[in-house]
């Protein structure tokens, strides 16, 4: 396969929710491309474990913080920017627990709205001076569910749609500062989160079959192929892209098979 390579040596990135799944894949891809990467997850243990899995080294920074809280996002940014530089902010952290309308309680609603939407706002706000100084780049990891809906996921769908709209507002406000902001809208990926959802469903095999079929291409995405695209988005190759909501979803939002 053709190989895209990027050289991010000297660049500093913060990836939220990087302990596992897509966040981990993005962090790994950035590290492999030479960047210094701050790994955020909820706990120090989760950050340390991810850093250990990546082999450690001085280009990996632990930035533990609970992004569902009001001060967690600022705390994550502070740890990531102790070197006084931030080029890439990747808001990837999310929660995704499927619930019917009836079963969606206040805690469930607030957790989704706060982790997915408010935290992404607050990290950008905290990182803004450094992003402006370095003409940096924001990638908000939304979802194909930021572009259309499924049942039993009302809080997640609302929050992800909000994230897409918020990304456009940020792109417009920051356009003349040279800071780009784009939303990435992946389809279903084969991540730990997906495996959790499959287990929760009670019939993992049927769950996987349904989601494979749901995507016109007939399979799930691998986190690595989404992460590779994030590296493209951050690069000068995407220098004219801002305010875009990029579907990378195996054709899911394009139509019906």
């Amino acid at each position: 396969m053709a190989k895209l390579t990027f050289d991010y040596e000297g660049y500093v990135a913060l990836v939220t929710g990087a302990g596992r799944g897509l966040g981990f894949a993005i962090a790994k891809a950035l590290r492999d491309a030479g960047a210094t990467v701050a790994i955020n997850d909820r706990t120090s243990d989760a950050c340390d474990a991810a850093i250990a899995r990546l082999g450690g080294g001085d280009r990996l920074i632990a930035a533990p913080a609970d992004l569902s809280t009001a001060d967690g996002p600022r705390h994550a940014v502070a740890q990531a920017t102790s070197g006084g530089r931030l080029d890439f902010l990747i808001n990837n952290a999310a929660v995704n627990v499927e619930r019917s309308i009836e079963a969606t309680d206040d805690v469930h609603w607030d957790t989704h709205l706060n982790v997915i939407l408010r935290a992404s706002f607050l990290t950008v706000q905290a990182a803004l001076p450094l992003l402006k100084a370095g003409r940096g780049c924001i990638v908000n990891v939304a979802s194909e569910l930021g572009l259309h809906a499924i049942a039993n996921n009302v809080a997640y769908v609302s929050a992800k749609h909000g994230l897409v709209a918020m990304t456009k507002a940020m792109a417009i406000e920051l356009a003349r500062d040279g800071v780009r902001a784009n939303a990435l809208c992946p389809g279903t990926m084969d991540t730990e989160l997906m495996r959790d959802c499959a287990t929760d469903s009670g019939d993992p095999e049927a769950y996987y079959t349904a989601f494979n079929r749901y995507h016109p291409v007939g399979r799930l995405a691998s986190p690595d192929e989404i992460a590779a695209f994030v590296l493209c988005l951050l690069s000068p190759a995407a220098g004219f892209m801002t305010g875009s909501a990029v579907a990378i979803d195996g054709g899911s939002t394009a139509g019906r098979l």
């Binding site: 019917s100 309308i101 709205l113 939407l117 706002f121 569910l145 930021g146 259309h148 809906a149 499924i150 049942a151 039993n152 996921n153 009302v154 769908v157 609302s158 929050a159 992800k160 749609h161 909000g162 994230l163 897409v164 709209a165 918020m166 990304t167 456009k168 507002a169 940020m170 792109a171 417009i172 406000e173 305010g243």
Partner: peptide, 25 residues
């Protein structure tokens, strides 16, 4: 997107999502 109303834009995007999710379910 409009400048200087990031919270408003986010909230109105979320309402579109809420509409779709409620409609489907």
């Amino acid at each position: 997107g409009y400048a200087s109303c990031v919270a408003y834009c986010a909230s109105k995007g979320a309402i579109v999502g809420l509409t779709r999710a409620l409609a489907i379910e």
